[in-house]
Computed example of a mutant assay.
Amino acid sequence: MTAPIALPRIMRIGGGAVREIGDVVASLGLSRPLVVTDSFQVGTGAAEKMLDNLDAAGATARLFADTVPDPTTDSLEAGVAALAEHDADSVIGFGGGSPMDTAKALGILGRQGGQMREYKAPRNNIGPALPIIAVPTTAGSGSEATQFTVITDSTNDEKMLCPGLAFLPVAAVIDYELTLSMPPRLTADTGVDALTHAIEAYVSRKANPFSDSLALIAIGTIGKVLRRAYADGNDAEAREQMMLAATQAGIAFSNSSVALVHGMSRPIGAHFHVAHGLSNAMLFPAVTAFSVGAAEARYADCARALGVATSGDDDTAAANHLVEALRELCRDVQVPTPKAYGIDKTQWDELIPLMAEQALASGSPNNNPLVPSDAEIRDLYAQVYG
């Protein structure tokens, strides 16, 4: 059986790579990019520096900085208007997962129009779309190298997974220096997100040898340096390794899939406005404990890559070590339960049936080693509340 593999056409990786953005745009024959970012990148001056680099390379760029965390269909409307006003021939997603997801959505809307709900799974979107260039500023989402975007439907709070090559960036500029300003909470949430991507890519029913190799490398790196980056944001070596691992994990899951953690995570983010990486972290140990018996050998490989099991441990022991190691990691980086985060239990319980329905509808749980029933997903939501 063949494995369809898709990657960005161009990748620039390393400290200072963002200064080459103008060269990347020019090399693709593009000249009128819309830079999609957020107010934070404007406030730090990073967005202005990007515009200066684009201008120096002969590009005519426009800034759109009105993205929101966990982008919604309503939030896309101003971006679509900005594309048209600028007559943009490309979109640069500059920021964390939300600006990159926004840029990807604008790429397809700018060429095809319509509403984002028309592009959600199970539809496979192959284009046409405006070219996307992704410049991540966090080490977590991996969106710079994936063929997915996630947009919340403003009418019903459904966090929609939209897949297909139309959302794969043609270029990714990966500069770890952009992550040096990340605070500890964001470092932890995005770092655990990257680890979730890598482990789910490896245990997914759609895993393949290409995705396996990148997933295991990413797991090993994150196990060594995430706590360091969390403890000391100025640890440049840890930041650089985390940035590369996040991209490797993104490539891995883009070419296999994510599974139950992500399927259950998206509704939490949509209904309770919890950041994506944090909602993954809230679920990660419990969902892994639920799933581990269905693929002990695969989870054991993850444990050994993470450095929490040895070749002397049998697969059952190693897989169980992984579950405990994830619990310990989440304790070390102070991942709160939904209860500790401040989510009202009555509201949580009331929404469990809808969240379970939305998790299953996303398709991601079907990739899990143990495919859950609706009742089992409801039970997991109840378990993790705290």
Rank of each mutant, 00 (worst) to 15 (best):
I92K: 08
L278A: 02
Q383P: 06
A295F: 02
Q347P: 00
G220M: 08
F40W: 11
N366C: 01
G363I: 08
R19K: 10
P184E: 08
N367K: 00
F272H: 13
K206R: 13
T149F: 07
A286R: 11
R185A: 12
Y299F: 15
G114M: 13
G386A: 09
D315W: 08
G164Y: 05
E200Q: 11
P365E: 05
S154H: 10
A61Y: 01
S279C: 15
Q241S: 07
I199E: 02
D235S: 10
A61K: 12
Y381R: 07
A252F: 01
S39K: 15
G307Q: 13
E177V: 09
R228M: 04
S143L: 04
E350P: 00
P338L: 10
V24G: 04
A65M: 04
E324A: 14
R123H: 15
L226H: 03
F40P: 01
N234P: 00
L354N: 14
G386Y: 11
G95V: 10
I5T: 11
S362R: 03
Y385K: 05
V24K: 06
E200P: 01
A172F: 04
M1W: 15
M182D: 04
D235N: 15
E357W: 06
I219T: 14
I343N: 07
A252L: 08
Q383H: 14
Y341W: 14
F40T: 15
S141N: 06
I132E: 02
A65E: 14
I217R: 15
V308D: 01
E200D: 07
G58Y: 09
S311Q: 13
G110F: 06
R9W: 11
V18E: 02
D55I: 01
T190D: 01
A245I: 11
M1I: 09
L109F: 09
F94Q: 07
Y176H: 15
A295T: 11
P336Q: 12
H86N: 14
Q41M: 12
A134K: 12
A303R: 13
A121C: 03
S204F: 02
F167M: 08
I133H: 01
T146I: 10
T247K: 00
L76P: 03
Y299E: 08
G263L: 06
P353H: 13
P267S: 03
A201F: 07
L322Q: 03
A82C: 12
